[in-house]
């Protein structure tokens, strides 16, 4: 075994019960220490965080945990999914995350989400400030303006995988390494029919939060916001506007990176996330 080129990541399945549904959830883990739960973007899956899971600088102090949301990656949708269109509501999203945290027995975790994950962690900072040690919103804001018609993402005369990748390619910085850009897009080509569209229901509509984000108490739950200069979805301006509403939050705009910092340019991203992770456990 010693000569096999394994990564440090361990993947396995976890059965999550939520109301009447059972979700078979795929989870990856690496490291020891403070739990760091990572939430992937809309329409993608936990592979986006492989560079975090494989980074000993992080896993020496953090137990990094990444799960694929139901309907995404290797996590199944619940039985009966075929009977209705998938639509991620704010309540369902929060319930899945909090049920996972409790049933996975996470104590005092840090939670870091990107894009829609960066939105929902702000909801959680408000509603569960005593539970989370800190929240990190990557490409996160409390409100966005839709800029294309979501119906294009799920119709029989448009290839869902190709169009999803083509849409989100606009959110990657031109400076990002080509191999990581295309790995990020590959994840988008593999989503189930209508899943990206269903996620964006939360991200663009149901999850708006700008009327309550000012209620977050950062003295109980520190809030960090990190967004990329080239993100045309959660723009730097939207992140900074959100940060203004959340008193005590710390916002940084990363030059030369887009909407997928951890997967499109992991080396650059790490120079910004290391100090935050160090500060949280200081």
């Amino acid at each position: 075994m010693t000569n096999l080129n394994f990564e440090d990541i361990i993947g396995r399945y976890f059965n999550l019960n939520l109301k009447k549904d059972n979700y078979r959830i795929y989870v990856e883990e690496a490291g020891q220490g403070t739990p760091l739960l990572c939430l992937h973007t809309a329409g993608s899956d936990g592979r986006q965080f492989r560079h975090i899971l494989n980074d000993k600088r992080i896993t020496n102090n953090y137990r990094v945990i990444v799960f694929d949301l139901p309907w995404h990656g290797k996590s199944n949708p619940p039985e009966g999914y075929e009977l209705k269109d998938y639509k991620l509501t704010t309540n369902l999203y929060k319930e899945i995350i909090m049920s996972f945290c409790k049933q996975y027995k996470l104590i005092d975790p840090v939670i870091m989400g990107c894009s829609m994950g960066g939105r929902v962690v702000l909801h959680l900072a408000l509603e569960h400030c005593d539970y989370f040690k800190a929240v990190i919103a990557l490409e996160g804001s409390d409100k966005l303006e839709p800029y294309y018609d979501l119906d294009w993402l799920h119709r029989p005369d448009v290839h869902g995988g190709l169009v999803q990748a083509a849409f989100v390619s606009s959110q990657i910085a031109p400076q990002s390494p080509n191999n990581f850009k295309h790995e990020t897009l590959w994840h988008y080509m593999q989503g189930g029919p209508g899943v990206f569209k269903g996620d964006l229901y939360f991200y663009w509509h149901d999850g708006d939060f700008d009327d309550r984000s000012n209620l977050i108490d950062t003295s109980k739950c520190p809030v960090y916001l990190l967004s990329g200069e080239y993100d045309c979805s959660c723009t730097p301006e939207r992140t900074l506007e959100t940060a203004k509403r959340i008193k005590g939050s710390k916002a940084t705009i990363i030059p030369g990176i887009g909407h997928f910092p951890m997967s499109e340019n992991p080396d650059l991203f790490k120079t910004y996330i290391y100090p935050i992770l160090d500060e949280i456990i200081k």
């Binding site: 849409f167 606009s170 959110q171 910085a173 031109p174 400076q175 200069e229 080239y230 045309c232």
Partner: peptide
């Protein structure tokens, strides 16, 4: 060669 933000992709330009 390296477009500025908002000009780097036609969908970024449409969004703006």
């Amino acid at each position: 060669k390296v477009p500025p933000r908002d000009y780097h992709d036609i969908f970024a330009m449409l969004a703006k």
